[in-house]
């Protein structure tokens, strides 16, 4: 069992088995949908709990997302994937994602860093 653990260690240190393109693509689709005012398409890319918590009573997810007026994301500048969690940095946004059985979904978007604290996000679960 030590060998598999050592191999796991090597794989994780080198990061050679981590696919960073899939969460980046999801974020690009999310921000493209927002830019094209296809808010329902953007909502479909949110994690279920995030989509559920986003609207106020009597509001749809798409209406809530539109009202937030998230800024343009811009090009991807960095991706980190650890387990089923990912962070995609864009020129104008930082987005957190979770991997579900049918793919990556946005957990939080419109995030601003806060020193020593979790990011402050416009959209989060």
């Amino acid at each position: 069992m030590r060998l598999p653990l050592a191999l796991l260690a090597l794989v994780l240190v080198t990061g050679c088995s981590v696919d960073t393109s899939a969460p980046a693509r999801t974020v690009e689709r999310f921000h493209s949908a927002l830019a094209a005012q296809q808010d329902e398409a953007a909502c479909a890319l949110l994690a279920p709990r995030t989509a559920e918590k986003l609207p106020d009573p009597g509001q749809t997810c798409a209406e809530a997302l539109r009202a937030l007026r998230l800024g343009a994301g811009g090009p991807v500048t960095g991706v980190q994937v650890w387990g089923d969690e990912a962070q995609v940095r864009l020129a104008g946004d930082t987005v957190f994602l979770h991997r579900f059985s049918d793919g990556w979904r946005v957990k939080a978007a419109g995030c601003e860093p806060r020193a020593g604290l979790p990011y402050d996000c416009e959209v989060e679960d």
Binding site: L12, W82, F96
Partner: peptide, 20 residues
């Protein structure tokens, strides 16, 4: 060493889940 690497993976997954 394996603890440090596997621990890092779990720790970072937890941090990302907590928006850190």
């Amino acid at each position: 060493l394996a603890q440090s690497v596997a621990g890092l993976a779990q720790f970072n997954a937890d941090r990302l889940a907590d928006l850190q």
